[in-house]
Design a protein around this nucleic acid. Structure first.
Length: 242
DNA sequence: AAGGGGGCCAACCGCGCAAAC
DNA sequence: CGTTTGCGCGGTTGGCCCCCT
């Protein structure tokens, strides 16, 4: 059993990309567009795995990438989105134009984690660490919860399924109603349109939307999906109106 | 000045999912 | 309807660079 390898590893380059390889990839995508990463390397004259080409393009060569340091606003937004989505870097990246999931993931691990720990906040649960009784200035997913919300399921659901939004994905055995009653999250997010990069499918799929005070300002979006339902909560007005 | 350690980031790996067959 | 194929994702690794001693 097992999967067949994605490419012939014996005949592919690995490691850092050369300028020449970059240029070949750029030229090819400019001429033919993205798509069929598996056959792209051969067509472009690259001795690379298709996955490697895709990653290189998405994370480094794409023309719409915003290079450079993260702004305070981006920083804050990443933290807020992580509260809701957990380690769903691609979803988080979709809210940060010009940023890639890899970039955000690296930034989280190298900067934000430490920053939160320094504030006495557990970066995984966003709860104050056991040793810290310091005032809690960031977002609390659930004020009484001992466990983090099942963000993984929620994000998985929000990313893949728009057909059964009212069905609870609660696998943790928590009482949905109880959680709903206590959940009072005011994020005041400023959220841009999902970044319409090539990696994101055109918005034929629902946009994952956050149930926050930002809801009003985002209502202009053509298709909305409230995360409430995906978090296993009762539908809010946004959910029910869509 | 050298080298050791730690941080950062690009790239790889393996798995899950969905479409195609 | 089961299997195969391709894509995308999250986690991890490895190498480069910078700082400190």
């Amino acid at each position: 059993m097992g999967r067949s390898p994605c490419c012939d590893k014996a005949h592919t380059n690995k490691g850092a990309w050369t300028q020449e390889e970059d240029q070949k990839l750029i030229d090819y995508i400019k001429a033919h567009g993205e798509g069929c990463w598996r056959s792209l390397p051969r067509a472009a004259g690259l001795l690379r795995c298709g996955k490697s080409c895709r990653l290189r393009w998405i994370n480094y060569l794409r023309p719409d990438l915003k290079r450079g340091n993260f702004t305070d606003e981006e920083d804050e937004l990443i933290v807020k989105l992580h509260v809701l989505l957990g380690n769903k870097w691609s979803l988080i990246a979709s809210r940060l134009p010009g940023r890639t999931d890899n970039e955000i993931k690296n930034y989280w691990n190298s900067h934000i984690k430490k920053k939160l720990l320094g504030q006495g906040i557990d970066p995984r649960t966003h709860q104050p660490t056991a040793s810290s009784a310091a005032p809690f200035s960031t977002i609390q997913p659930h004020k009484d919860s001992q466990m983090p919300l099942d963000m993984d399921n929620a994000a998985k659901c929000s990313a893949t399924d728009d057909t059964d939004q009212t069905t609870s994905n609660n696998t943790s055995g928590h009482d949905d109603k109880e959680v709903t009653d206590d959940f009072n999250l005011d994020l005041d997010l400023s959220i841009s349109l999902p970044h319409c990069s090539s990696r994101q499918p055109p918005p034929s799929k629902p946009l994952t939307m956050l149930s926050t005070t930002a809801t009003q300002s985002i209502s202009r979006y053509t298709r909305e999906l409230c995360l409430c339902s995906h978090l296993g909560f009762e539908s809010c007005e946004t959910c029910s109106s869509s």
